[in-house]
């Protein structure tokens, strides 16, 4: 692997995203929303930093997944990815270049959430770690969908429902016990549970197993998609 090529892809993606409103809005929407909601809505009895935790889970389920999917699918559709592959860029170099950019952009968003929640010390460290784990799983899911899809249209027809399931399941679970049982076996549900116990997280076996199993399944799906469809 060539770090210079990874860096070239990363820089290209920074410039591209700054001019791509569809992807840019994924990174900005929830951080802006959380600042507005957290500062303007105060309801008696509402848990502390309710919006931060709720939107952070949604952000993880949405931004990395959708942006990864749409970037890969668009590059496939417009043949730019084929040109990169024909110019000695290895698939892993491309995925790491794009992935590191999305991880960085989402972590900047995570810092906005952390600042809005006024997390400090252990709380802050736990929050950022949880965000990073969630972003990585979400990104891998997006990469699998992007690789599987032939173009941006087919990618969004898959990524939108998948994103909605992962983003909204934890919120719906808080209103319904049956849904909660399902949500506990999904990575975004576990991320939400961890968010709710920030500062006093005690990793139980179920949390670790669910995150590992979900990550493993997504990784296998990505491998299948990659072997079946390739990148270019």
């Amino acid at each position: 692997m060539n770090p210079k090529k990874i860096s070239a892809i990363f820089q290209k993606q920074v410039k591209e995203t700054l001019k791509n409103k569809e992807v840019l809005i994924q990174f900005l929407m929830f951080p802006i929303l959380v600042v507005i909601m957290e500062n303007s809505i105060k309801v008696e009895g509402m848990p502390e930093h309710y919006f931060v935790q709720l939107f952070a889970t949604m952000y993880i389920g949405m931004a990395p997944l959708v942006s990864m999917t749409s970037i890969i699918a668009e590059e496939k559709e417009k043949n730019t990815l084929r040109m990169l592959m024909l110019s000695n860029v290895k698939p892993m170099e491309y995925l790491i270049g794009i992935g590191s950019y999305i991880l960085l952009a989402c972590m900047i968003g995570a810092c906005v959430f952390a600042a809005t929640g006024e997390y400090k010390g252990r709380e802050l460290a736990e929050f950022l770690c949880i965000m990073m784990v969630g972003i990585l799983i979400s990104m891998l899911t997006g990469a699998a969908i992007g690789v599987w899809s032939k173009n941006a249209m087919s990618a969004s027809s898959v990524s939108v429902p998948v994103m909605m399931v992962f983003s909204f399941l934890p919120m719906i679970a808080s209103f319904n016990e049956h849904v909660k049982k399902v949500s506990d076996f999904v990575w975004s549900g576990q991320i939400n549970n961890l968010m709710n116990s920030l500062g006093a997280i005690d990793f139980d076996m179920q949390t670790v197993l669910v995150l590992l199993a979900n990550g493993g399944v997504v990784f296998v799906l990505f491998q299948i998609a990659y072997k079946k469809c390739g990148l270019a």
Partner: peptide, 21 residues
């Protein structure tokens, strides 16, 4: 098919490939 990055400038399109090569 051209395979150019439509949102990027001519310079930035070529810059990417100078970095790759």
């Amino acid at each position: 098919t051209s395979g150019l990055y439509e949102r990027l400038s001519c310079y930035d399109n070529l810059l990417l490939f100078t970095q790759i090569y």
